[in-house]
């Protein structure tokens, strides 16, 4: 279980990036972290993963304070799929995934059969095992994203954070990645938190949503409770229609642009 308790953050100035953010996520749940640009989504993920120290509040992983875990201990519990993945040197996809075994290996220890088995399993799970011997620099955005998800899984984490994993991907890859993430949460009983701007995508895959605005949580809970016309207006300052998908029953949003909006109200 992941628990964030009254976490605040600021870069020293008066402006608070996060203010008293609290949330709790259980294993097997896929949680979407939503909010406009600059609302603090990435900052929250970076605090949970100990890249940043909060100026107030505590993050607990299964009852243990994150600040008291070593970087290595944390890496065995929690993995992160970054938003942008640099790849300027020609490691093969398998090499990259094997790097995920780092927190489990001693300094001079070479990867063993067992590590390779885990890497293979993770790559099959994210459907990229066929890319194993390809240099990472030659992969497309979607392929590379899957390799990095596999790397995170190779750490054998109980917690998985993803920062806009579907950004810059076309519709097919977006759905593919979401299917994989959803499956992981369910099958491996992971706590998965993903920051995203794709409201409709998130609405149809996530179990719960957290909506941030100006560093505060303005709504949290079931998809239907969070994605309301009022909440969206408060967070994003735009008007939307909230509809129900005729086939899946999921919530989806239809933006109402300026002209239509005027027409609607005149």
């Amino acid at each position: 279980m992941l628990r964030v308790e009254k976490v605040s953050f600021s870069y020293g100035g008066a402006r608070k990036i996060l203010e008293s953010v609290s949330l709790e996520v259980d294993g097997g749940k896929l949680v979407g972290l939503l909010g406009p640009n600059g609302s603090g989504k990435t900052t929250l993920l970076r605090i949970i993963s100990k890249v940043l120290q909060p100026s107030g509040g505590v993050v607990f992983l299964n009852g243990k304070k994150v600040s008291e875990l070593s970087v290595r201990e944390l890496a065995r519990e929690l993995a992160v799929v970054p938003q942008e993945t640099a790849a300027s040197f020609e490691f093969t996809a398998l090499d990259v995934v094997l790097m995920g075994r780092t927190p489990h290996l001693r300094r001079f220890e070479l990867e063993k059969e067992e590590d390779l088995r885990i890497a293979e399993e993770c790559m099959r799970l994210t459907d990229c095992w066929h890319l194993a011997d390809r240099p990472i620099t030659t992969l497309s955005g979607g392929e590379r994203q899957r390799v990095f998800i596999a790397r995170a899984l190779a750490q054998e984490p109980k917690y998985l954070l993803l920062d806009e994993p579907t950004a810059n991907l076309d519709l097919r890859y977006q759905i593919e990645i979401m299917e994989i993430i959803k499956r992981l949460a369910v099958e491996k009983k992971l706590v998965v938190i993903m920051a995203s701007h794709e409201l409709n995508l998130v609405a149809s895959y996530c179990d719960e949503l957290v909506l941030l605005n100006n560093g505060r949580i303005i709504a949290a809970g079931a998809v239907r409770e969070v994605l309301t016309r009022e909440n969206i207006r408060r967070a994003f300052g735009v008007d939307v229609l909230v509809e129900t998908h005729p086939l899946t029953g999921a919530v989806y949003l239809l933006p109402v642009n300026g002209q239509q909006h005027t027409a609607l109200h005149s």
Binding site: S49, K50, V51, V71, R72, E73, L74, A75, R76, A79, V80, P82, T85, A86, M99, G100, T102, P103, R151, A152, Q155
Partner: peptide, 8 residues
């Protein structure tokens, strides 16, 4: 940051 995430 990615290196930090694998425990370095």
């Amino acid at each position: 940051e990615s290196a930090l995430h694998v425990g370095i």
